[in-house]
């Protein structure tokens, strides 16, 4: 298999999470040098792809809910030049019924899921534009399209992130930087707050490709969007949810409750 990312510098946020690990392994397997960010140094150390030479990975612990954390990551990412790839993968998905969301929870979700990618796209995107090249993928969700009554701030944050994707695509396109959104399959274990029994199963059941997600399926799509094969694709949303976003079989009422 050809190595599509040999020597490229790839920044991945939320690198210790379900998809962060999948993305790190996939980019590493195709020759990339990684800058992995997450909140906990220990979690990051455990997430480094097996067998990856130490000189090909840098770990950066930062809390993207804070400007200090965001600023430190931007500085690390552009030290020594603009990275080739930024994947805004970090996100939080607390399970909260709509009418019980507190202002503090709302701000925290929008902060990590929307404000942090916004600032990272400004800071790292600016360096990419000066270099005249770069690819950014924002990890969004079919929740941007399908209402989940217990994940409304999350869905709103992902809607906003898809909007930001388009705005940054237009802003940075003339300067050689592509910006796209990719929606992963639902993965249990990516939520900070545990979900009630049956909830994850109900969301997974929405997917039309019923066999469940294949490990690596999401990374395959993200790597495609970051590769030269996608060099005329920008401002797009690629849904890797097995058709869940176009599922209208269970009716609007059920969708609002799920």
């Amino acid at each position: 298999m050809p190595m599509r990312f040999s020597g490229q510098r790839v920044v991945i946020t939320g690198a210790a999470g379900v998809y962060g690990r999948e993305l790190s392994a996939a980019f590493a397997a195709e020759g990339a040098r990684l800058l992995l960010a997450d909140r906990s140094e220990a979690d990051l150390a455990a997430a480094v792809p097996a067998g990856l030479a130490p000189d090909r990975v840098t770990l950066h612990a930062a809390d993207l809910a804070t400007d200090t954390g965001i600023d430190s990551l931007i500085a690390a990412a552009i030290a020594g030049g603009a990275p080739d790839v930024l994947v805004n993968n970090a996100g939080i998905y607390p399970f909260i019924p709509l009418m019980e969301v507190t202002p503090a929870e709302y701000d925290r979700i929008l902060g990590v899921n929307t404000r942090a990618p916004f600032r990272l796209m400004q800071g790292i995107g600016r360096a990419m534009a000066e270099a005249g090249r770069g690819a950014i993928v924002n990890v969004t969700s079919s929740a941007a399209e399908v209402i989940r009554g217990n994940g409304v701030p999350y869905g709103a944050s992902k809607c906003a992130l898809e909007y930001l994707t388009r705005a940054f695509a237009i802003e940075l396109g003339p300067r050689g930087v592509r910006v796209n959104s990719a929606r992963p399959p639902f993965a249990e274990g990516s939520a900070l707050v545990s979900m009630p029994p049956g909830y994850a199963e109900a969301v997974v059941a929405r997917a039309l490709l019923g066999r469940g997600r294949r490990a690596g399926a999401f990374a395959d799509a993200v790597l495609f969007l970051c590769s030269d094969a996608a060099d005329y694709i920008t401002g797009a949303v690629l849904d890797v949810g097995g058709g869940g976003a176009i599922n209208r079989r269970d009716g609007a009422a059920t969708r609002a409750r799920s």
């Binding site: 490709l209 399926a217 395959d220 799509a221 694709i233 920008t234 690629l238 849904d239």
Partner: peptide
């Protein structure tokens, strides 16, 4: 590689 992708309309349009 797209085994979990169906029903999408993928723009290839330079944005």
């Amino acid at each position: 590689a797209a085994s979990y992708i169906t029903g999408v309309a993928l723009p290839v349009d330079g944005g």
